[in-house]
Design a binder for these strands. Structure first.
Ligand SMILES: [Mn+2]
Ligand SMILES: [Mn+2]
Ligand SMILES: [Mn+2]
Ligand SMILES: [Mn+2]
Lengths: 158, 158
DNA sequence: CAAATAGTTTAGCCTCGGCTAACAAATATT
DNA sequence: AATATTTGTTAGCCGAGGCTAAACTATTTG
């Protein structure tokens, strides 16, 4: 047995902040974060490629490198990975393109990102800050929270 | 020159969602996320050790392993790192303790975590979901946004 | 067209954060 | 006290995601 801890008592004394959640629930919190971190970078790449295609018509490795502030070698390696995952197609010295699966991921990620960004702005966060925070937060927002953020934004038009 | 991209035009046509931010600003978004990810796990460990000390009186490696759903070997290795960073003190088969620096980090992280958690609950997110989302979001919320979340929570008491 | 510049890929290195397996030490049980 | 169980450490493995340096390919420029 590894859980020699006794379970927390029912919510009685609320003296010093919240009590610890039950072990299994607590464990799921951290697991969810670890899972999000596995797909986070992939999503950011795919989303960025989609945005570059949408706004620039093409997505070159060098653009990704400068926009992410990462070396071209790093981008090159990641593109190989995206290729193996069936998310992008690439011919050397040509623009990258998204596969069907890549387009789906880009669309989903972009939508989620936008909801978070617009929500933060609706809350009153300055644009630059909202963009920075949204870039990280987007990967840790559940569908439930996302829906609430969207409703909030709609009902708090500026 | 690696930025052969031309800078986006001033915000004129707002047809298909937001425009791409300027390269340097965009780069800072991703850099901020990478920086957050460097300290994230450390903060979670220190925060958890602080919570275990607060609520249980002691923090054992085995508790951390089960609460994080991670092997004991992983915890053991991480404790060595926390030790080298001067955040915890440990004697084998005894509870871990936080150094002064560790206590400061735990306090700061806990406060931030609580603001995010209470904010999500005030928004209407169910407790279990709020806990999961807060565990990831907490590391990506700027001081500016944090302050706004706190104000929001205070003025939206249920 | 030759040379310079820009873009891409590859190779090799590093740290981090997981894991399992084996062992050691402390504690609990009989 | 002997044994069983729990707890902790160590070694060695792995993949992800960074980096630099070097080579190669395309494109642009003189
Ligand atoms: Mn995004
Ligand atoms: Mn992101
Ligand atoms: Mn994160
Ligand atoms: Mn956390």
């Amino acid at each position: 047995m590894s859980d020699h801890e006794q379970q927390p008592l029912p919510p009685t004394s609320r003296l010093s902040g919240d009590a610890l959640p039950p072990v299994e629930q607590h464990a799921r919190q951290y697991e969810t974060v670890r899972n999000a971190h596995e797909t986070e970078l992939i999503e950011d790449y795919v989303e960025l490629i989609g945005d570059l295609l949408r706004h620039r018509g093409e997505a070159r490795a060098a653009d990704i490198a400068s926009r992410m502030a990462v070396s071209q070698a790093t981008v090159s390696k990641m593109i190989r990975r995206l290729n193996e995952l069936g998310l992008v197609t690439s011919r050397p010295y040509r623009s990258l393109f998204l596969t069907e699966a890549g387009q789906n991921m880009a669309e989903t990620s972009r939508a989620r990102h936008d909801v978070v960004l617009h929500f933060l702005r609706a809350l009153g966060v300055r644009d630059t800050t909202a963009r920075i925070d949204a870039e990280g937060m987007e990967h840790h927002v559940s569908d439930e929270t996302l829906a609430i953020m969207q409703r909030f934004t709609e009902t708090h038009q500026t």
